[in-house]
């Protein structure tokens, strides 16, 4: 995926920036207002903290960021731009450790990736996008439609399979998702696949029975490969507020999430929740979705994201 970003750096930066423009525009404007109107006193810092909160950064992270600015950076009058630069640096510092691309190891054959998350976050679409990216990198990719609950979910994945020319394993609607996952892994092994992407049904994290179903999928996969699933990727909708924290916490507790993909950053949502999540959980953020096309799934880059969030050129 690193190759993809080098090739398309300009294009992706542009897309990210325009995707984030709604959040950054408002945030940047707000920062400017605070620091042209006030000195960097306690009131300004409190306002700044709240502004970060209103961008979905979360109370703890916002307090931490405001505290850093108070301690180290400014004593006299400052411009909004200076503050933005400093903020971007601090946000990037929080995000850098989690900007970890997904790695596919040849020794895994196939590497099994399970996609999970609450309803309507964009799991199926993300599976489709990943399939395209890895197929283009020359890997042998197979998809498994383990969302047997939502009526059109299987058809939706089949369409992605057709579009990307990737093999797909399906069963009838209503089939046991764990059985689908098991059979798909069996098939992927026999056919010498490099990568198996398993799409699962959306589920609210506080529904015990549905979470148990997810645990069953993981358990069944280990019977064929003790290390499977190698990655459990949780897909998060950027329009979600602070509940994203609970979502990650619960999913992590029950199915050992290994990384995140954050989608729908092209809407009007601010997406700042990502910073709070990185601060709290330190889970790798593998990619972000900034549009509907396959190339709109991009590796997560801390500096670019922080700059984009604050409306700065880099």
């Amino acid at each position: 995926m690193n190759e993809v970003i080098t090739e398309q750096k300009r294009g992706w930066l542009g897309r990210l920036r325009s995707g984030l423009s709604k959040s950054s525009g408002r945030l940047a404007q707000g920062v400017g207002d605070i620091f042209t109107k006030h000195k960097l006193d306690e009131t300004s810092l409190a306002d700044l903290e709240e502004l970060l909160i209103s961008a979905d950064l979360g109370v703890n992270t916002s307090a931490k960021l405001a505290g850093q600015l108070a301690d180290h950076r400014f004593e006299k009058d400052v411009t909004g731009d200076t503050v933005r630069q400093a903020l971007a640096g601090d946000i990037a510092a929080i995000l850098s450790p989690v900007a970890v691309p997904l790695t596919i190891k040849a020794s895994n054959r196939p590497q099994v990736i399970l996609m999970v998350g609450v309803n309507g976050t964009g799991k199926t679409t993300t599976v489709g996008k990943l399939a395209k990216i890895y197929k283009e990198q020359g890997l042998k990719v197979m998809l498994a439609a383990a969302d047997t609950f939502r009526a059109a979910a299987i058809d939706q994945l089949v369409q992605w399979g057709t579009r990307t020319g990737v093999e797909i394993f399906t069963d009838a609607p209503g089939a046991d998702p764990a059985a689908v996952a098991y059979q798909a892994l069996e098939k992927a092994r026999n056919e010498g696949m490099d990568l198996l992407l398993i799409d699962t049904a959306g589920r609210l994290h506080n529904k015990a029975n549905l979470m148990a179903e997810l645990q069953k999928i993981c358990r069944v996969l280990t019977k064929l490969d003790p290390d499977a699933p190698h990655d459990v990727i949780m897909v998060l909708d950027a329009t979600t507020g602070q509940n994203a924290h609970t979502q990650v916490e619960m999913f992590k507790q029950l199915v050992d999430i290994t990384g995140l993909v954050v989608t729908k950053l092209d809407g009007t949502a601010k997406g700042g929740v990502v910073v709070g999540l990185a601060d709290r959980f330190g889970l790798p953020i593998h990619a972000i979705g900034v549009g509907e096309a396959a190339q709109d799934l991009q590796p997560f880059d801390a500096g670019d994201f922080a700059s984009g969030l604050l409306g700065l050129d880099r």
Binding site: D56, T239, G241
Partner: peptide
């Protein structure tokens, strides 16, 4: 509207 929505609920 989804009860899980963050600050964006207001914009929408």
């Amino acid at each position: 509207a989804d009860a899980m929505t963050g600050q964006d609920a207001v914009n929408t």
